[in-house]
Write a protein that binds this DNA or RNA. Structure first.
Lengths: 216, 216
DNA sequence: CTTTTTGAACTGACTGGTCAGTGCAAGGGA
DNA sequence: TCCCTTGCACTGACCAGTCAGTTCAAAAAG
């Protein structure tokens, strides 16, 4: 009954214990992401997730309020990885003194890297992102916003700098670029996994920079 | 146990008697596609589908062997609509004497039209297409092949005619174009539904033809 | 240093509900 | 008449979420 934290100081009584918890949560995320990517949310059971994570079912509910919340936290956790890596790629390119188009290219590369590293997470986003009437819709909108905004930002700067035409439609172009990379990468992973990332990147760069049509 | 179509001839046994049955099946497809697009396959119940279609649950099982098979037939039915309309757009463009790039543009338009007309079907494909370990995986591979092949065909002709560089990677470019249209269109439907299709089409054309970068 | 206490973390059997699929008698429509 | 549809009761599997009880490392007491 006595409240927690009766023991040590105020600030870090849970440093050691929270490590354990953190580890468990990470294991659950890892188990959940692949299972849900493969089977979808509804056909993945909490028992399966617990089993693959190597913990008891009760532990899932000790760490997350519900199956739904586990999933939403997973989505939020994943998008931070993506948005951060996109932004870092763009910033690094700018620091290197590259043009805005170079920054876009760097983001394409970052996108490919991300998808190669977290294929299941990517599959999962794609499967859920345009679905309507689901419980986590609002979470997904935030998540999408977070990623698209980074791309739009670079496009906006490119237009401001005169590198891109003022006629382009920024939100739509951002979506289109995003989709281009997304679908090309998923197909790469699913149907031509032997190809190198440099190869795929080069093809997409070419497409982006309009060197496809119009022979030299 | 006995397969369906034990009845009449070998090839088209359901032609005459089918009218009534066909109507029921179409109603079931329509009901299923929106429900599954919204909720996913597993969380959509057969009772819901029957109710929305306005038929009895028993009728579902009279017309389809299982929930799974209803879904697979829906996938097959849908892809015919898409592949046909892409091919027709390309052919019509060629008949009009357009270039191969014109044909690609016509296919983008056809893709946008399709997504605008069958948004639920599109959402459903996206949600399932890159998923692994599902019962209908092989059906989906066929389905994807059917659509991508059309795009690849036009790209191949364009390269043969010298309209596109020989350096392009045809399968990957086809995927990327497909993804570009797909994601741009889904975002359009979900987040900027007020925009006209001509508007969206114009932006994507510009992106395709490399008029984005490189100011005049 | 040893013993006891504490409580966060974890466990897994259990419950209440849901749903795919079945069976069948009766009711149309062509 | 025959094919299709209806309505409805029923079964058995499956599954999200619960809860009483266990574990164990670190803090407190001796």
């Amino acid at each position: 009954m006595s409240a927690r934290a009766s023991g040590t100081g105020t600030i870090s009584p849970m440093d050691s214990s929270s490590t354990r918890r953190q580890t468990t949560r990470r294991k659950l995320f890892e188990a959940a992401v692949t299972l849900i990517a493969e089977q979808g949310f509804s056909s993945t059971t909490v028992d399966e997730i617990a089993e693959r994570a190597g913990v008891a079912k009760g532990t899932v509910y000790y760490n997350f309020a519900s199956k739904n919340e586990l999933f939403e936290e997973l989505l939020r956790h994943g998008i931070e990885l993506l948005a951060t890596s996109l932004q870092e790629a763009a910033d690094a390119s700018a620091d290197r003194g590259g043009s805005r188009v170079d920054a876009l290219d760097a983001m394409i590369r970052a996108g490919l890297d991300f998808i190669a590293r977290y294929p299941a997470l990517t599959q999962l986003y794609v499967a859920e992102l345009w679905r309507t009437n689901r419980a986590w819709q609002s979470t997904l909108m935030v998540v999408r916003e977070r990623a698209i905004t980074v791309v739009e930002g670079v496009l906006r700067e490119a237009v401001a700098d005169g590198e891109l035409s003022e006629d382009i439609d920024i939100p739509l172009t951002a979506s289109a670029l995003f989709g281009m990379v997304l679908v090309a990468a998923l197909d790469w992973q699913s149907y031509q996994p032997h190809r190198s990332i440099d190869d795929v990147h080069a093809s997409l760069s070419r497409l982006l920079q309009g060197r496809v049509s119009g022979h030299p």
